[in-house]
Design a protein around this nucleic acid. Structure first.
Lengths: 173, 173
DNA sequence: CGCAACAACTTAACATGTTAATCGGTTTTC
DNA sequence: GAAAACCGATTAACATGTTAAGTTGTTGCG
C-alpha cells in the first residue's frame, strides 16, 4: 500500500472521507513545483522592476514582433482583464507600444519598444543561467521527460469534457 | 516539423536573443498544465460557493483536525496574508472555528466545524469522480511517473541556492 | 524588573486571477 | 440601411498573490 499514510492527529475529523492525501493531489504538486521554480527567477525579475506576468508579456512580444491583444493573451496565458491592466502599465513605462488596426478599430496591435528590448537583453542572461543550472541539477533527460508528460496530461484533459456544477443527486435548482 | 514554426511577422525583434521558445518554458508548462487540471474542478467548487484556496483550507483542516495558523499556511501552501483573509471569511460563514492557545496568546488554533464537514462531504464525491476520470484518461502509471518527477524537481530546486537580484557586471547600487 | 529582540499573526498597499458587465465597432438580418 | 446580434477590448468588483509594515505577546538579558 503506497497511499495508506493516514492523518496522525487525534481528531480524524473526516474519517468517512478517504480522499487522497491532500498534499499529494495533482494541483498541489503542480503548484508547489512551479513555485519552487519561480522562486529562483523572481529575485532577478524584481531587480529589474518586473513581475512574472510582465516578463511573460515582454518575452512573448520579443518573439512575436507585432501581435493582437487577444493573441497575446493566448500565448502569454493571461486573461483579458489582467492583460489590459498590464499593457496600460507597460505602455506608460514605454516598454511597449499600441496602435489601432485600421481595418477593424476594435482591435489593436501591440509591439515591444527598443527600451523594452534592452530590458530583455539585460534580464535574459541571468534567466538563462538559472535555467541552465536547473537543467544541470535535475538532468536534461528527466526535464524533457517531465515536459512531455505535462504536455500529454494537458492534451488528455483538454479532450475531457468539462462537467458543469450541476449534481444529479440533488434536485435543488 | 512540429516545433519549427518561427515567428511569422516581419519584425523578428529579438533575433539576437535565442531564448528557448517561450511557451515551452518550464514555468509556462507547469502553469498551463495546472490550469487544464483546475478547469475541471472549479465548476463544482463554484457550485458550492468555494474558491480553490478555500477548498484547500477545508481539506487541510479535515485531514488535520486542529492546527495552528502557521502550520495551516504551510500545508495549504498559502501565504500568511492570504490565509488571514480567507480564515476571516470562512469563520464568518461558520465553516471553521478559532480559539486562542492559552499557553501562547499569539497563536490560535483553527478547526473545521460540522457545517464545514458537511460541505466537504457534499463536494468530495464529485471531486473524486473527476480525479478518477482524469486518472483513467491519462493513465495511472503515467500519473504516478509525473508525480514522482514533480517531487524530484522540487527537491532538486530546494537544494539549489537562491540567487539574489545582484548582478556582478553592474556597479549600480 | 525593564527593555530590547524576536515571533505569530494581521493590515496595508499594490498587482494579478476571475467572472460579469460595459462600451465602441462590426457583421448579420430583415 | 437600421435594429439586432455579435465581437474585441476594457472596466468593475471581489478574491488571492506578494512584500512591507504594524500589533500584540513572548523571551532573553542586563
Amino acid at each position: 500500500m503506497t497511499t495508506a499514510s493516514k492523518p496522525r492527529t487525534a481528531a480524524r475529523a473526516a474519517a468517512k472521507i478517504p480522499m487522497r492525501d491532500f498534499s499529494q493531489s495533482l494541483p498541489m504538486s503542480l503548484l508547489r513545483t512551479r513555485e519552487s521554480v519561480m522562486r529562483h527567477f523572481r529575485p532577478s525579475l524584481r531587480a529589474h522592476d518586473l513581475t512574472e506576468q510582465q516578463w511573460r508579456i515582454l518575452r512573448a512580444l520579443a518573439a512575436s514582433g507585432e501581435i493582437e491583444v487577444t493573441e497575446l493573451a493566448r500565448v502569454a496565458f493571461l486573461l483579458g482583464p489582467s492583460l489590459s491592466r498590464i499593457l496600460r502599465d507597460l505602455e506608460g513605462r514605454k516598454l511597449i507600444e499600441r496602435r489601432l488596426l485600421k481595418a477593424d478599430l476594435r482591435r489593436s496591435i501591440v509591439s515591444i519598444t527598443s527600451k523594452g528590448l534592452k530590458l530583455i537583453e539585460a534580464v535574459a542572461p541571468t534567466s538563462e543561467a538559472i535555467y541552465a543550472e536547473m537543467t544541470k541539477r535535475f538532468g536534461a533527460r528527466k526535464l524533457s521527460d517531465l515536459q512531455a508528460l505535462l504536455h500529454e496530461l494537458e492534451a488528455a484533459l483538454l479532450a475531457m469534457p468539462a462537467a458543469d456544477g450541476a449534481e444529479d443527486d440533488d434536485a435543488g435548482e
